[in-house]
Amino acid sequence: MRKVGRARHIMPMGANLRHLYTLEIKASRNLAGHYTWAIRDRGKLYRRSDKPHPSEAEARAAAEAEIERLLDAPDRR
């Protein structure tokens, strides 16, 4: 994982090295003091959190777990 500004870029290992996910953690617009995450695939929204998390650290942990699931999926693009 490589940190660029406030976003983190995750490049999976394997034959398709052009795949690049970007993780964004943002303050929730609907619930003060909570955070949401979004995963982008080459700039386009790929997945996002379905609920706000009570801390930035919890949002990041949930998003990184989702990225791990994406990287481990056998039918990955």
Rank of each mutant, 00 (worst) to 15 (best):
H53S: 02
Y46S: 15
A73T: 13
G5W: 00
R40N: 01
D41Q: 11
Y46W: 15
V4N: 10
L71M: 15
A15M: 10
A73H: 15
P12E: 07
A65I: 08
R2P: 08
R42I: 03
L70R: 02
S28M: 09
R76K: 13
R6N: 13
R40K: 14
H9V: 02
A57Y: 07
R76H: 05
D72E: 15
R6L: 10
A73Q: 09
M11E: 13
M13V: 15
A65P: 07
L23I: 08
I67F: 01
E64A: 04
H53K: 04
A7H: 10
A65S: 13
K26Y: 03
I10W: 08
Y35W: 12
E66I: 06
A27D: 14
K26M: 08
L17R: 15
M11P: 00
D75P: 00
R42L: 12
I39S: 04
A62T: 07
W37P: 02
P12V: 05
D72P: 01
L20N: 14
P74H: 10
P74S: 12
P54Q: 06
A63P: 00
K51F: 08
S55R: 02
D41F: 09
R40I: 01
L70T: 02
R69M: 06
R69V: 00
L23Q: 01
E24V: 04
I67N: 00
M11C: 11
P74T: 02
R60C: 02
S28T: 05
A7G: 09
H19A: 11
D75H: 10
D41G: 06
I10A: 00
P54I: 06
I10S: 02
S55D: 04
L17F: 06
Y21G: 06
A61F: 06
S49C: 04
N30Y: 13
A57R: 14
R8M: 11
H34Q: 13
D72G: 15
V4I: 13
R29V: 14
D75T: 11
N30P: 05
I25Y: 00
E24P: 01
D41S: 12
M13T: 15
S49D: 09
P12K: 05
I10H: 05
R40L: 04
S28I: 05
R29W: 04
T36D: 05
S28H: 08
H19T: 09
L71P: 03
R76P: 01
H34I: 07
R42N: 13
E24Y: 07
E58W: 00
R18F: 09
D75G: 10
Y21P: 00
